[in-house]
C-alpha cells in the first residue's frame, strides 16, 4: 500500500491536492477534486448510516437512561446522562460476565483447533501426495455455503438422543456420550463452528501457499528437506500473514457467537438465554426492554474484539521485531 508512487490523475504534479491547486488549470482542478468523492460517496454514505452512526448511537445510548414517571410513563419521561452506570449494570449481570468468560474459553480452544486442522488440510492438499485436490478442496469448502442456522439444526438433530445416528453408532461400541450436557454442549457448538469454517480458512491459507515461488521448494529439495521440514521451515513462515489474518477473523467471529447456540438451545436445557455476550445483549434489548444496558453490552463486545484483535497483532509484531 504505497502512496508515494501514485500520481494524481490529470494534475501535472504528483502529490497533495494543495500543490496541484496552485497549478494553472485551477477551475478544472476544483471539479476534478470532487470526482473521487463521486465514486466513494455512495459507499461512504451507506457506511456512515449502517456502521458509523449505529456505533455512535450505541455509545450515546450506553451513557444515558430514560426515566419514566408514573406507572406507565404517562407523567412524562426524561433522558438523563448516567455516566458508566449502564456499564456497571451490564457487568453486574452475572450471566453476562459468565457469557464473556464462556466465549473466551471457547475461543482459546476452538480457534487453534480449527486453524490447525485448516492448516493441515491446506498443506496436504497442496502436497504432491494429494489425490484429486480440486475435488476435496471444493468438498471441504462446501459447509461455508450452509447457513449457520441450518448447520445448527442439522448438527442439533445429530446430537439429540433418539434421533442421532451418531449416538446409535457410539452405542454399538458401548459409548453413551452426552453431547448436550452442561459441560459438553459448548464443545458441541465448537464442532458446528469448526465444521462451518475450516474450509473457508483453508482456502485463505491455500491462496497464500500458492504464492510461494517454486524455486524455494526446489532449493529445499536439493538441501534434502523432507515434506515435514519443508512445511516447518518454508511454508509456515511464508504463510504467516494469512495465519494472522484468519486468527483475527476467528477471534472476532467467536465473540459474535449467536445463531448456533440459540438454535441448539431448542434441543437442550443447558443453553440459557444469555449463553453468549450477544445473546445476553439481545435478551437485554428485547426481553428486558433495556436498550441502554443492551447498548453497553454491545459496546463491551466490540471493545473486547478490538482489544483481543489488536493485542494479538501486537504480540505477533513484537515477536517479529525480536527476531
Amino acid at each position: 500500500m504505497t502512496t508515494a508512487t501514485r500520481t494524481a490523475p490529470g494534475a501535472d504534479s504528483p502529490g497533495r491536492p494543495r500543490t496541484a491547486a496552485a497549478a494553472p488549470p485551477r477551475r478544472r482542478f476544483r471539479t476534478r477534486a470532487l470526482i473521487p468523492w463521486g465514486f466513494v460517496g455512495p459507499f461512504l454514505a451507506l457506511f456512515t448510516l449502517c456502521f458509523f452512526l449505529p456505533i455512535l448511537y450505541a455509545l450515546y445510548q450506553s451513557f444515558i437512561q430514560i426515566r419514566r414517571y408514573g406507572l406507565f410513563g404517562e407523567e412524562g419521561r426524561e433522558t438523563v446522562f448516567t455516566g458508566f452506570d449502564n456499564y456497571a449494570r451490564a457487568l453486574g449481570q452475572e450471566a453476562f460476565v459468565d457469557s464473556v468468560g464462556r466465549v473466551l474459553l471457547f475461543g482459546v480452544v476452538q480457534v487453534p483447533v480449527m486453524l490447525g486442522l485448516a492448516l493441515v488440510l491446506a498443506l496436504l492438499l497442496e502436497s504432491a501426495s494429494a489425490t484429486w485436490p480440486g475435488f476435496f478442496r471444493a468438498l471441504y469448502f462446501m459447509p461455508y455455503g450452509v447457513p449457520g442456522v441450518v448447520a445448527s439444526l442439522l448438527w442439533g438433530f445429530l446430537y439429540v438422543p433418539g434421533l442421532s445416528p451418531i449416538l446409535d453408532v457410539a452405542g454399538l461400541v458401548g459409548l453413551e456420550p452426552d453431547l448436550l450436557g452442561p459441560n459438553s454442549v459448548l464443545w458441541s457448538i465448537a464442532n458446528i463452528i469448526t465444521w462451518l469454517f475450516i474450509g473457508y480458512n483453508m482456502l485463505i491459507l491455500i491462496a497464500q501457499l500458492k504464492t510461494i515461488p517454486s524455486e524455494l521448494y526446489e532449493s529445499a529439495r536439493i538441501d534434502g528437506a523432507g515434506p515435514l521440514q519443508t512445511a516447518w521451515h518454508i511454508q509456515l513462515p511464508l504463510i504467516r500473514p494469512a495465519l494472522v489474518l484468519t486468527t483475527v477473523f476467528s477471534i472476532i467471529g467467536t465473540l459474535q457467537l449467536f445463531a448456533e447456540p440459540q438454535i441448539l438451545a431448542a434441543f437442550t436445557v443447558n443453553i440459557d438465554s444469555a449463553y453468549t455476550p450477544n445473546m445476553a445483549a439481545y435478551r437485554s434489548a428485547f426481553t428486558d426492554n433495556d436498550y441502554n444496558v443492551a447498548a453497553a453490552q454491545s459496546v463491551l463486545v466490540a471493545l473486547t474484539a478490538f482489544v483481543l484483535s489488536f493485542g494479538f497483532l501486537w504480540l505477533v509484531n513484537r515477536k517479529d521485531r525480536q527476531r
Binding site: L53, P54, Q256
Partner: peptide, 21 residues
C-alpha cells in the same frame, strides 16, 4: 482506515443500535 476499522467491529454489535436507529 475507517472502513477497515469497520471490519473489526463485530457485525452483531452494530445490529442492535442499527435497529434502534
Amino acid at each position: 482506515g475507517l472502513v477497515l476499522g469497520g471490519v473489526l467491529v463485530p457485525a452483531a454489535a452494530t445490529a442492535l443500535p442499527l435497529y434502534l436507529l
